[in-house]
């Protein structure tokens, strides 16, 4: 492997290490993480239906956010871009394990039954089953709208759709989920 000396005895690798820059410093990151990590983790856990996977994806989401060279106008923009990354990270994870383990309500229900997760109500199990029937984007939109109380602009930014398309997409997702919940009752 070539490790040529380039400048003042430094290798190119040394120079690159010095040049590693993350999008914010540690103190700013701590505040940003404290404000958003729990919501993003809950989002990832619900998108994937896997709490352990959500732990890994949370780290991946914040890493990709820190490495992105995006400039954000406000904390809201930072948050939106964090959710967009989380949406993509969950999608990538889903693709990787698509054959092995699709989003499965039964897996999550079983996890609760065997005591790995916290005790949950019948209402929550109905929700899990209904979410499992939705497409990933529908699941993401509904979660952000009703569990997180996000605005339409925030949801559009987080799932990567045009704000003008969101209302009709949300309408269809809502109708589908209401039908699923109706079937569960």
């Amino acid at each position: 492997m070539l490790r040529e000396t380039t400048y003042n005895g430094l290798t190119r690798a040394d120079m690159a290490v010095d040049a590693v820059e993350l999008v914010m410093d540690e103190e700013a990151f701590r505040g940003f993480y404290e404000r958003n990590a729990r919501s993003v983790w809950a989002y990832l856990a619900r998108l994937t239906g896997d709490r352990q996977l959500a732990d890994d994806l949370l780290q991946e989401t914040f890493y990709r956010f820190l490495r992105a060279s995006a400039v954000h106008e406000s904390d809201t923009h930072r948050r939106n871009s964090l959710y967009l990354i989380a949406t993509n990270v969950a999608r990538d994870a889903r693709r990787r394990r698509a054959v092995r383990m699709p989003y499965s309500a039964s897996a999550e229900v079983e996890q609760h039954r065997v005591g790995e997760g916290p005790a949950v109500s019948e209402k929550s199990l109905d929700l899990t089953r209904a979410l499992a029937e939705l497409k990933p984007r529908e699941r993401a939109m509904l979660w952000l709208a009703y569990a997180e109380g996000a605005t339409h602009e925030e949801i559009a930014a987080a799932v990567g759709v045009r704000p003008s398309s969101l209302k009709s997409l949300l309408f269809r997702a809502r109708r589908k989920m209401a039908a699923l919940l109706g079937g569960a009752r």
Partner: peptide, 18 residues
Amino acid sequence: ALEGARDEVLAGAALPDA
């Protein structure tokens, strides 16, 4: 159905420190 689901998912979750 979704109201309160966030808190329910988060119950017992131990997130890594910043």
